[in-house]
Each structure stands twice: as C-alpha cells, then as structure tokens.
Design a protein around this nucleic acid. Structure first.
Lengths: 339, 339
DNA sequence: TTGAAAGCGCTAACAT
DNA sequence: ATGTTAGCGCTTTCAA
C-alpha cells in the first residue's frame, strides 16, 4: 500500500511537502506539486483516511442509527426512503455513512455515545426510536452533533426534522368531516412516539373546530402494526357500530383496519371510510386504494443530512426542519350513508 | 476525550498494560486488570477505533456499494431487503457498515479500489451493478475481499451470492405450460444483467423441454423498469395477439405488463396470464394479485455478509452461495381460453 | 518554498 | 506480569 512516504522518496522531497502538495496548499511550487501528483498517480496512491481522521480529529463520517432496517419494516418503505434521502445528500457532500447495527441485543449494550465516540463520527442521525429510549438522554447530554427524526429536541448541537403531524392529522380528519362524517374513530400508534402525540392533537383539533365531541372510546392504539391495528379495530368496530370512519396514524395500520372491516362484513368505503398516514406505496395499490396523508420520507432524510452538516459547520440558523403533508384522496373514503 | 494514556496515569501503570488489560490478554494480573477496567469505566473511556484500525491494519468495517439506494427503487424493496439482511448479520458479528454513496456522478470519479482503500474497509459487498461496470474489473484485479450479489465471479478473495435464476425462470414458464399455455412471451431486463441472462436460459429450457418452439419475436427487454416494460409489452401484445401468457423478469415489469394489458382491453388472467419474478410486496396486493417467483432478498444480504466474513477469515469452503426460489401462484395466471 | 520533528491513540515486539 | 520503544500514515507547528 503506497503511503506519502513512498511518494516523498520517489519525488525526492519530504513527506510534509507531499502532504501539502496533495492537499492543494498554496505554499508549494507548482513544479513540485505537479511532480508529486504525477508520482502519486503512478504509484496508485490512496490516502489513508484513518490516519488522516486520527490526526485531524474528524472523520467525514455520519453515524446512522435507524431502527427500521429489518425484515419487518419492508412493507412500509419509510426507513428506506429516509435512507435514500440521506444517501443522496451525503453523496453530494463528500461524507460517508456508517450504519450502526443496533438491531441485535448484543449491540444494544453499547451506548449511543460509545458508538459515536468509538467510530469517531462527526455527527449522527437517529430515526425510529421511542421517546423513552435511553439513547435520547445521551443525545442531549453529549455534545455530539446529532439530528433526530420525528423527535422534537434541540440543543446547540442537536436538531430535528419532522413532518407537520398535527396539521397532517387535521387534514385527514377534516376531509372526513367535510364528507359528512361525525363519528370518527382513531387508531393511533403508541404513546411513546412523538408523531402519535401530534397526530392525536390534530385529530382532536379537527373535531373541536367542527364542534364534534371527542369520544375517548373511539380512540385506540395499534402500535403502528398491521395485525395489532386489525385486532384493535375489530373490537372498536364491534363495540361501536356507530362509527362511520376511522383515521389511522399509519397506512400499515389502515391496512389492518381494512382487514378488520372485511372480517366484519363492512364495506369500505360504503359502510366505513378509512384514512391512513404516510402514503406508502401499497396505499395506492390495495383495493380499495387508501386515502392517505402523504409525507415525503426521502425529503426527510435529505433534510436531516443537510441539517446535520449545517450544525457541524456551525452555520447559524434554525435546528428545526418541518415538512408539509399532502392529502391524497382515493377510494377508501366516501360520505357516510344516509340513515 | 479519555485515552488509554489517561487511564495509565490514573492507574499508575503503562499504556501497554492498559491496552492489554482492556483487550483481555492473559498476561496481566487479575488485580491490575480489574483496576484498569474500573478506571476506564470511571473515566468514561471509549476506544478510538481509528487509532486501533490504523495500527492493526483492519477496521472491522464492510464497505457497501449498492446501486438501488434511491427514490426510484422504492417500489421494489429488493435493495432494502438485502440491506436489512446484511445489517442483521453484521450486527451479530461486531462489524460495522460503511455505505459508499455512489449515486452522484461526482463520487463516481473514485474507483472501487480507491473507495475501499481510503476507508480501509476489510471487505466489500457490491449489489446492483451491471456486468459491464468498470468496477468489476477492479474487483477481480484488486485483492480486497469482496462479495458480489448476482454476479458470478470468484477469485481467492471474491465470492458471490445469487439466486438460482435459471431454475426460477424455468418454474415460472413450466407453471404456464402446465396450465396449457404454449405461446408464452418473455419480458426480460437487459443483457447486462447476469440475472437476465440466466432467466432467459430458464425460459428457453422450459420451452425446449416441453418441445415448444422458441420465438425470438416474443422476447423483449423492459430494462427492469415498469414504464419501459409497459411500452414493450404494448407493442408485443399488439403485434402478437397469439400470445396467451407473459413471463416477466421482475414483478415491477409485470406491473407494467398488467397496465399494458389493461390499455389493450385484455383481461388478466382470462385473456392473458402474467408471471413475475421477485415476489415484491406489491405482488400480493395488486389486483389481480401477481403470480411470481419469490426470492429471499433478506437471506441474500445475510448470506453475502456471512460469506464475506468467511472469506476474510480465510475459512475454507465455497465462495458461491446459491439460494432457492419459490413459485407463488396467485390470480394473474390461469389456463388459456379454449379457442 | 521546503524540511525536521512532534504527535494523534493505539498495538506489539522485545526487553526485564 | 509489566514497561520501554517503535511505529501505523498522516497533518501541523516551527524553523530554515
């Protein structure tokens, strides 16, 4: 493996000069610089980023902690979208990404700070952890630059990217209200997800503004999981046949509700309207296709990486990025039948 | 940032002893070892893997070159599955993953070898490149341990993981033949994909074995792309109304063919049977659901990482892993109508 | 414009 | 069982 030492020897200069020449410093004569570059090429030289990072104390690396990089998340392409977005920005910026595997219990023994310090990442992006995750405390306490996705937390070194979940949920429920629904159920995720808290607020606000009373019995938690949502919806719809529409905090759960409705012999959308959230690919392909609140996961990832870089470079500016949503009206919603 | 030097000072021993103690060498007394570990914990020490990697000349890192980590690959979750599989294995093995962003043209200026050498990865996994990609030549010429996905190439340091695409394609076509189809079209990917070459062989073998003549005019290339496949299928089905079934080298393309059939007013499966490949999530959700040859992308990723580790550790054994497929019969295939 | 020397944090011969 | 020393490949004062 060629080193700058080899180049120095071949060029008859010192390693210092080689280093400077290769890094484009001005204080090296054009002639020697050219010579150095030529020899480096001849010798097929590649810089050793480990050595460089060690001495420069920065690695040009982002650490990535994503929870959804596993088989069970294949159906909702959220993690993938975020990953792709991060990848895009990072490709433009000269950084590389280290994927921390936090899936196994073994790895979970390492703290967030350890993970970052060991690999000497310049910053981290965290997605998919619950608000009660111990990592979060570390994120705040350490001064490692970090961008959280969907967790509202800022310090001088920490920012976050999220979607306007309140407004998104509101749009969904308002869509139902405008169609004439008043008895609207809600299958939320779980209380430890910030997005769930927000979407609940949006749900409640929409109802309040339409002076529709909120009925706690019509609200359930589906753990962001298709089967759990199906189970919860089954009970909800059986216990409360008055419900004419259900808003779900994720499309995956909406799929579960769809199954529940089918089991109960309820026609969607004629007897029950369903609105999802996320606009996953499946939403437009299932039958009936799913009305949903679209969020741009690719953009979320892209903005997260961008924000991290700006924090790293001490740029002034907000540490918060909030993205919009879009209501996609499809076949799963319809005005309620006249009674 | 705490270093072993700090620990050495605090413990009143040399850095060597600290290093040995922390790494569990036997030639250090239990008493001092305990002391060292205790102090390390007190000082909140994290090893600097950069320094360690530099001196040990290995980084406990796999480099990942995947082509499909972008927005346009969201519909087929192949890249995601592979990524998740790799992630699983890697999480169990103590390695970490560096995602090389090869999306941008800028990055593309760096050669494969440069990418790997700069980051000093111990090995690489490459997915989604074409057989005419210049990277491939480098993979062979360099002695960096590498596992290719779906590209049959072995050297002492290179292995590959693939699916039995010949048999897979054969199963698909045989399924159609068994149903009574004899005029079977084929929408392949493109000639620079190994899997396409294999699937073509499988298609031809199945026909030959059934003594059905091969008609080159019934074979087209859809570039593994939904819209391209739709276009190609449109022409194919118009020019050759005798065709009663189409085998597609990917589900995404099968979706395109489905659209083409719809445009031509052909009912699937009554007037046209369609078989796809991959068994992506969408396959079972579209209407009509898609008969498909399932391959396990998660397993591919897992096996790739596993194989790479075994190559790294100089384990004897084959450098080739070939996985099976499974025919999933759904609604898009049916015996041809009697004429 | 160039070079000598120090040092980033760690491991590993080679002593003792 | 422990310490001394050298060195991994690089950048960066400081001096010339």
């Amino acid at each position: 493996m060629t080193t700058i030492k080899d180049i120095a020897k071949a060029a008859g200069v010192s390693v210092t000069t080689v280093s400077r020449g290769l890094n484009g410093y001005s204080d090296v004569s054009e002639k020697t610089r050219e010579k150095i570059v030529r020899i480096a090429k001849e010798l097929n030289y590649s810089p050793n980023t480990l050595a460089r990072s060690l001495v420069m104390n920065k690695s040009k690396t982002f650490g990535l902690l994503v929870s959804g990089l596993n088989q069970s998340s294949a159906k909702d392409n959220i993690t993938f979208g975020i990953l792709a977005g991060i990848n895009k920005f990072v490709g433009e910026s000269g950084y590389d990404i280290v994927l921390f595997s936090t899936t196994s219990t073994k790895q979970r023994e390492k703290t967030y700070t350890q993970l970052c310090k060991e690999r000497r990442v310049d910053g981290a992006i965290i997605q998919g952890i619950r608000t009660d995750d111990p990592y979060l405390k570390e994120v705040v306490e350490s001064d490692i630059p970090c961008v959280l996705i969907d967790i509202p937390l800022t310090t001088p070194s920490v920012g976050y990217v999220t979607t306007d979940n309140i407004l998104g949920a509101k749009k969904a429920v308002q869509h139902l209200i405008h169609m004439g629904h008043t008895r609207i159920g809600f299958i939320n995720g779980h209380g430890f997800a910030f997005v769930s808290q927000q979407r609940l607020i949006g749900y409640e606000e929409a109802l309040k503004e339409a002076t529709i009373p909120i009925n706690q019995e019509w609200i359930g938690n589906g753990e962001f999981c298709e089967v759990a949502a199906e189970r919860v919806a089954l009970k909800l719809l059986e216990d409360h046949p008055e419900i004419t529409a259900v808003f779900c905090a994720s499309d995956l759960m909406a799929l579960g509700v769809l199954k529940a409705a089918r089991k109960l012999g309820m026609d969607v959308p004629n007897e029950l309207s369903i609105v999802g959230f996320d606009d996953i690919i499946l939403a437009s392909y299932v039958t009936p296709s799913l009305t949903s609140i679209a969020q741009d996961t690719f953009q979320i990832g892209y903005e997260a990486a961008k924000l991290l870089l700006s924090i790293l470079e001490n740029e002034a500016g907000s540490h918060v990025v909030s993205l919009g949503t879009e209501l996609k009206v499809r076949e799963s919603t319809k005005p309620p039948r006249q009674q």
